Amino acid sequence: MANQSALGFLIDTVFNLYLMVVLLRIWMQLVKADFYNPLSQFVVKLTHPVVGPLRRVIPPLGNVDTASVLFAYVIACAKVALLLTVSGYAPDVQVIVVGAGITLLKQIFSMLFWILVIRAILSWVSQGYNPIEAALHQLTEPMLAPIRRVIPSIGGLDLSVVILLIGLQFLQVLIFQ
């Protein structure tokens, strides 16, 4: 039983990390992040071996790279199927399909949370230009700018990240309750 838990943890961690990279690729394309940023290059190099050939077959829908979205969904399906198998359950197609959707939503919320936290911490300690901070700025600014228009900085403190984090946590509780 302990070996199954350890294996389940390993499968969960590896799939979640790679799924975050694929979701980050989708997000970076949506916000048109700088392609030459080192973080962007890292994400593209990790995902291109699969997404590149898929893009030749699956066309994008507007700004959405459907090949990357499909790849993320397939990764989530594989994760759910493997976790079910390791836990001793027979993989059921319906459970895998629904579980993959839930997995994707949870990963999106988790990724948003951590990127906002990392951006907030970097804003306190960073001095000068930092390419990672620039990429995180490009990713989060479309969500933070509308909040700043409603609630400006108070005494030099930007509360938009805190407000967005609270809003995301509220949505997560509302959806997964």
Score class of each variant (00 low, 15 high):
V31D: 00
V31P: 00
R149M: 11
I108Y: 07
Y129P: 02
I121G: 07
S126N: 15
M111G: 07
A100V: 12
V98S: 12
Y129S: 08
T85M: 09
L46Q: 13
I115W: 10
D92S: 11
K106P: 02
K45R: 15
L54P: 00
M28T: 05
V31A: 01
A134Q: 14
I147G: 01
K106W: 11
M28P: 02
P91Q: 06
P131G: 09
L139Q: 03
R56Q: 07
D65A: 05
I58N: 03
M28W: 01
I147N: 02
P38T: 05
T66E: 04
Q41D: 06
D92Q: 10
R55K: 13
V95Q: 07
T85H: 13
P49W: 07
V74I: 15
F42A: 05
L104C: 10
V64M: 14
S123K: 13
L105C: 13
A72R: 02
P60M: 04
A120W: 06
L83P: 01
R56F: 10
Y129C: 04
I58T: 04
Q127K: 15
L39M: 14
L61R: 14
L46K: 12
I75D: 01
L136Q: 07
N37M: 09
S40W: 01
Y89M: 14
I108K: 00
K32V: 05
V97M: 09
K32G: 09
V117R: 02
P53D: 04
E133R: 09
S110T: 04
A33K: 00
K45Y: 11
G101W: 02
I75M: 14
T140R: 00
V50E: 01
